[in-house]
């Protein structure tokens, strides 16, 4: 359907999408278009603003406590019990975000590859949510690669939780330089930045910080060792939001993106 050239049709579809009468495959197809098309999303938002206030007419119903308990278990036990004023106590609790997000990704099935699934199951049985990551001392500098042939490398494609690719990483296996490209990731501002992590396979291993991601579209991150050592035993990479100076080796913020790190040779 050539909906793009037809603003009236776009608006009608958006209206019926929000009302709920757009159903089945048509609904799914529309969601697909909306993911790609900001103008269509604006139409949807405008219809939400028009129609959703109808919900004001619905009487509130107090849900059972077990719903909150289940949510708490899903996102991590650090969430404070509702009804308590925990504004101060809440300050330090954000550090559970990393694992909470992992748990979310596991349960919603957004991570589909076998390797990542195995990793996430391993992570799920892990006891502590916050782990110390030893700060590594760089042991060697960049190894110059002279050959023009394709070099064995690690590649990773990281997606956000909507499945959109937001970060590409590439590192020759003997190099300690990781090349990256950010795709549509804006800088968080407010003294925050993005930190890159290598996620381990085994439950008793710790995620390793690969450092803060520079706030440029394309650049490099200096690994603490050659990619073979830095990435070889870590089948996935993830990005969390952290203070701009770095988390200090303990992931504290929400997970922004994640993806397998594959050997390309």
């Amino acid at each position: 359907m050539r909906y793009r050239d037809k603003p009236e049709l776009q608006d009608r579809l958006a209206a019926e999408y929000v009302l709920g009468t757009l159903r089945g495959r048509a609904r799914l197809r529309f969601e697909g278009w909306a993911r790609e098309d900001a103008a269509l999303r604006r139409c949807v938002e405008a219809w939400q603003a028009r129609l959703v206030p109808l919900a004001d007419a619905i009487d509130p119903v107090q849900p059972s406590r077990r719903v909150w308990k289940a949510i708490e278990a899903r996102i991590g036990a650090d969430a404070r019990s509702p009804g308590r004023d925990s504004s101060l106590a809440g300050r330090g609790t954000g550090r559970a975000g990393f694992w909470e997000s992992l748990s979310f990704w596991r349960t919603t099935g957004l991570v589909t590859s076998g390797m990542a699934a195995a990793l996430l199951v391993a992570v799920a049985v892990r006891e502590p949510r916050v782990v110390e990551v030893p700060v590594e001392v760089p042991v060697e500098r960049l190894v110059e690669v002279q050959s023009k042939k394709m070099q064995p490398a690690y590649v990773a494609v990281l997606r956000d939780d909507a499945g959109k690719i937001v970060f590409l990483a590439y590192a020759n296996r003997e190099s300690n330089e990781l090349w990256f490209r950010r795709i549509g990731m804006s800088n968080p501002g407010g003294g925050m930045g993005y930190e890159l992590w290598a996620l381990p396979t085994e439950p008793n291993e710790k995620p390793r910080s690969l450092g803060m991601i520079p706030g440029v579209e394309k650049g490099t991150i200096q690994l603490a060792s050659a990619a073979d050592q830095a990435l070889g035993n870590f089948p996935a990479l993830a990005i969390t939001m952290e203070p701009a100076k770095g988390s200090g080796g303990i992931a504290t913020g929400p997970m922004i993106a994640k993806g397998d790190c594959q050997k390309f040779w």
Partner: peptide, 8 residues
């Protein structure tokens, strides 16, 4: 920003 108290 990961503030679970705010979430509660």
């Amino acid at each position: 920003q990961g503030d679970s108290a705010a979430f509660a």
